[in-house]
Design a protein around this nucleic acid. Structure first.
Length: 774
DNA sequence: CATTTTTACGTTTTT
DNA sequence: CGTAAAAATG
């Protein structure tokens, strides 16, 4: 294949530097809309094409499964285009459909299939399928490769059981939710129960450490892991077993991490171990044919509640890089040109985020026209707010042929805010999708069916077994189940060992013995067939034999009808899974089910209005964005208002929301909002007051013709002007100030200006109306 | 034992 | 207000 790769010509100099990076560490500071996904995909393609890196030696970590899938698709497309030119001398889209399909599958086999691309959770649970049997924790707990992945509600039930049943503690004082949260945080920082106790040497700390330890016992008994273990256990395994670490270290010569600002301590440890092979001395690190390439933006760090720590990103230069100042470093690139949003939107975002103290100075530089003003709406209450938004949507859609329902997004702080919008959208017959909220795999019927599959794949999974042993009703009551559990405990075996033994059941289960034996026979029958039956057929047989669907049909309610539909969809999901994946084993399916999120199902090019939380909107973009519920206490959330660091995170969240918008941005707040039934007065969010006033409009002259704004030609009048340290300048909003620093030059210039009233600000002189004064 | 009625309790954000 | 767990009833 040729080494001249024409796709490099589509990049700006910084992007190009990132894409062409080969060995060693590189931090890419990528502002919103600066083309970081492009940089990532092109770099992977470049590694393979130009540097002849074998795809199986590349590890690419993304934040969601959807991002992983998209990345693979984009790389596949790049290769397909290259190959089309080379083998057919023609552009890919001019080939016949047959040739396209053939080429696509060829590309998939040679380049994409062996690439390790996914979330931390999916990648490392895959690694655990290989190596978990070599692991033993500090208390000697062990797991095998068929481990179940417990979701948040499974985890919380375990904690609740320990707190109330085992330790007889007051679950008001030790709320399962907050205890579980503390345990999760401990795991995300790499603490074992003992280490946690050392960190918090008080009564509460001791109790939680005890619960944590018992919780691990329970997980091990069930041969199960929670989300956090999927990261923590590989880390501990790598630390205790250098052969295992060595193997993966040699395999993953090129590591890429997207959204690096949202990694936590354990994830960082994992990356560091893989890169350095556990060698602490920097001088010993071997960078030949090896790289670590991370992309992130501290201003978009919004997951600290999940123990994400953006100082990890800020520290990259010292950890892996050359640690040199920005001007001299060879291990950092900043992508600041924004290709997404109009200038007004960017300026608002820039000014908002400058209220934060903890950040890398970085300004989003516009490449597009000024665009419309930002419209701020003051609503009477949440119903009127929704009414305003839907009216705008209808009008804009009506007036502009190039706009479809998919051009709009409604973003809010909490999931609960979606309701009034949904109701009005339904009333207006506007198609919409709510991203997040109740996840598909969280529905009762889906959890039931998945529990059947988990019990089959992992007989030790007592939690799943108990969930389905009497679902649908088989006349196996609480008393018999307690009997069986007791026996298992006495003998120190799993519940399954008892249930699957006919003689034991006959003595223990009394009248229900027959039902239990039938149930056990069904499960063990499928266990034997795991290897022969595809997941879809196994599921089909199971649904039939357990009469799960039959039972729903007998209920005859609308709700039951819905559930049957969902079960049908799960069956479709197994079919799709089998088509798309190499490994189609039951455990692989269960893994993907456990780790899939609702976000992953958001389809591109969908012609429906999108509703989602600000968190869910990260990485997406829309021509028109409505950012709603901008009220003190809601956004910023009241829990964050007394904590400066938390408040800064809320501000970053707002920044993320603003930077989703391409052409138009609407902000709104309500004077009064329903909270738990009662009406509460509300105040406008402080974030609104942090935005530049001249960019906002509150008049309703907004319903003008909506047109795409063309990109500006390179540079504006101010570009050529020479700015020097010491210059006195007049800024349209900030008043008189003095230039203290000049960064970059030409069309990458930005200046720091000290204003007497407002302190120091970094400004792009091409964006701001800046005048030199004598 | 299973269904219905009552009560309490809650909202950040999610892999 | 709406949901989910707890309690009460047939």
């Amino acid at each position: 294949m040729t080494t001249t790769i024409d796709f490099l010509s589509h990049l700006n100099p910084s992007q190009r530097q990132a894409v062409e990076h080969y060995c060693g560490p590189l931090l890419v500071v990528a502002g919103a809309g600066s083309g970081k996904t492009r940089a990532l995909t092109y770099r992977i393609a470049n590694l393979i094409l130009k540097h002849r890196v074998d795809p199986e030696n590349i590890l690419a970590v993304t934040f969601t499964n959807k991002a992983a899938r998209e990345m693979k698709e984009r790389i596949q497309k790049l290769f397909a285009e290259q190959l089309a030119m080379k083998e057919h001398g023609q552009r890919f889209d001019l080939l016949t459909e047959y040739e396209q399909t053939k080429l696509r599958s060829q590309v998939w086999r040679t380049y994409i299939k062996d690439l390790w691309c996914g979330t931390f959770h999916s990648l490392f649970s895959r690694i655990l399928r290989f190596d978990i049997e070599k692991y033993q924790d500090e208390k000697g707990r062990r797991w095998n490769r068929n481990f179940s992945i417990f979701d948040e509600s499974d985890a919380q039930s375990l904690v609740k059981e320990i707190v109330t049943k085992q330790l007889n503690l007051d679950d008001k004082k030790f709320e399962p939710r907050s205890v579980r949260y503390a345990i999760s945080n401990a795991k995300n920082q790499g603490f074992s129960p003992q280490e946690f106790e050392r960190e918090q040497p008080n009564y509460r700390g001791r109790v939680i450490a005890d619960v944590y330890s018992r919780y691990q016992d329970k997980l091990a008994e069930n041969n199960a892991l929670d989300f956090d273990d999927l990261i923590l256990i590989p880390t501990k395994l790598f630390q205790q077993n250098e052969q295992v670490l060595g193997y993966w270290h040699r395999k993953f010569r090129h590591i890429l991490v997207d959204e690096y600002q949202d990694t936590n301590r354990t994830q960082y440890d994992l990356i560091r171990l893989l890169v350095t092979n556990g060698e602490d001395r920097k001088s010993e690190w071997e960078w030949q044919n090896r790289s670590v390439f991370v992309v992130g933006d501290a201003d978009q760090s919004i997951y600290s509640f999940r123990m994400a720590d953006f100082t990890i990103l800020l520290e990259f230069q010292n950890d892996f890089g050359d640690g040199l100042p920005d001007e001299d470093t060879r291990t950092m690139v900043k992508l600041e040109e924004n290709y997404r949003s109009c200038e007004n939107i960017l300026q608002a975002a820039n000014e908002l985020i400058e209220n934060n103290t903890q950040r890398i100075d970085k300004v989003l530089k516009p490449t597009r026209g000024a665009g419309e003003q930002i419209y701020c709406h003051k609503a009477d209450d949440e119903l009127e707010e929704a009414d305003f938004v839907i009216r705008q949507i209808r009008t804009l859609e009506h007036q502009n042929p190039e706009v479809n329902w998919g051009s709009f997004a409604i973003l809010y702080r909490t999931n609960a805010q979606s309701r009034p919008f949904e109701e009005l959208l339904v009333k207006n017959q506007i198609p919409y999708t709510v991203v997040g909220g109740i996840k598909f795999y969280d529905r009762k019927e889906i959890k039931d069916v998945i529990a059947y599959l988990r019990a089959i794949a992992n007989p030790a999974d007592t939690v799943s077994l108990l969930r389905v042993i009497n679902t649908p009703r088989r006349g196996i009551g609480k008393a018999t189940i307690d009997n069986l559990i007791n026996a298992a405990q006495q003998l120190g075996t799993t519940l399954w060992e008892i249930i699957s033994d006919e003689t034991s059941v006959n003595t223990l289960a009394g009248r229900s013995a027959k039902a239990v034996n039938n149930f056990a026979a069904m499960i063990s029958n499928y266990q034997e067939q795991i290897a022969n039956l595809p997941v879809s057929e196994l599921l089909m047989g199971l649904l039939e034999e357990s009469s799960y669907v039959q039972d729903l049909q007998n209920q005859g309610t609308d709700e039951a009808e819905d559930r049957i539909q969902n079960v049908q969809e799960l069956y479709n999901a197994t079919l799709q899974f089998q088509e798309e994946n190499e490994d189609v084993s039951l455990t692989a399916f269960l893994q993907s089910a456990a780790l899939s999120s609702d976000l992953d199902n958001l389809k591109e090019g969908q012609t429906a209005v999108s509703l989602m939380t600000l968190h869910a909107s990260k990485g997406l973009e829309f021509p028109v964005v409505f950012l709603v519920g901008l009220e003190q206490g809601l956004f910023p959330n009241y829990r964050s208002m007394n904590d400066p660091a938390a408040l800064e995170e809320e501000r970053r969240l707002c920044y993320v929301g603003i930077t989703r918008a391409q052409e138009r941005l609407y902000l709104s707040f309500a004077r009064e909002r329903r909270l738990y039934g009662s009406r509460e007065p509300a105040l406008r969010s402080q974030f609104l007051d942090e935005l530049p006033e001249e960019l906002l409009t509150t008049k309703s002259k907004i319903l003008q013709v909506y047109t795409k704004i063309p990109a500006t030609s390179n540079g504006k009048q101010n570009t050529t002007q020479n700015w020097q340290v010491g210059d006195k300048v007049l800024h349209k909003t900030f008043g008189i100030g003095e230039i203290t620093h000049v960064f970059g030059s030409g069309n990458k210039i930005s200046v720091a200006i000290k204003f007497s009233s407002l302190g120091q600000k970094i400004i792009d002189p091409r964006v701001a109306q800046l005048q030199k004064i004598e």
